[in-house]
């Protein structure tokens, strides 16, 4: 998401570190009422993004059924307090992680993650390639979703039934073909830039 909000200006490393720290700090909290202000603060964070910021909260819509399932299961096995804690904890983490993604450019994210990947060099893996792969993954989520939707359409258009799991193999094949195209396009613009040379 484009913008110049205070969160946008914060360095990527700081945001990622804060995300990690908050995630760990939330772990020992077992009172649902203590988590509520954290959740509200997170939502307030979206409000600081400016117009349209709060709208971004709708991202949790697709995971709501799962959250509900977890809530029911937790309440059933360990009581309603544990259920509410689990629910809020997951909500906060999903929303915060998304907030970081929204306010950080891919380039900045890659630069921030690079030092953590440096030890990989000892086993012969170039860290900038891993960072690049992560960035690619994020970029291609919408593309893969569109691919799934078009396969599903083709499936239905020819009267495909409810056994939609059968699309898994064609989806995989399409994804592999897509990755071939992307690899070609990458090479055509000079491959993956090596950050360590700068």
């Amino acid at each position: 998401m484009a913008g110049r909000s205070p969160l946008h200006r914060l360095p990527a490393g700081v945001k990622l570190a804060a995300l990690m720290a908050i995630s760990i700090a939330l772990y020992p909290v077992d009172q649902p009422l203590w988590l509520l202000p954290v959740l509200l603060l997170t939502i307030a964070g979206y409000a600081t993004l400016g117009p349209g910021g709060l709208q971004r909260l709708t991202l949790v819509k697709p995971v709501l059924p799962f959250l509900l399932l977890i809530l029911v299961f937790q309440t059933w096995t360990q009581g309603w307090a544990a259920g509410l804690v689990m629910l809020q904890r997951i909500l906060v983490m999903v929303l915060l992680a998304n907030l970081v993604t929204l306010t950080t450019s891919m380039d900045a994210m890659m630069a921030a993650v690079m030092p953590l990947l440096r030890p990989l060099r000892w086993v012969g893996v170039a860290p900038h390639r891993i960072a690049f792969a992560v960035a690619l993954l994020v970029r291609f989520v919408p593309v893969l979703m569109a691919l799934t939707a078009s396969l599903l359409e083709a499936w239905r258009a020819r009267g495909g039934g409810r056994r939609q799991w059968r699309l898994a193999v064609p989806l995989l094949i399409n994804a592999i073909r897509l990755s071939d195209h992307v690899a070609e396009a990458l090479a055509a613009r000079g491959g993956i830039p090596n950050d360590s040379t700068h």
Partner: peptide
């Protein structure tokens, strides 16, 4: 090199990148 399908070619989430 310009490919047939822009979605195969665009690697980054924003235009500037």
């Amino acid at each position: 090199f310009i490919f047939q399908n822009p979605d195969h070619q665009i690697i980054f989430p924003t235009v500037l990148e």
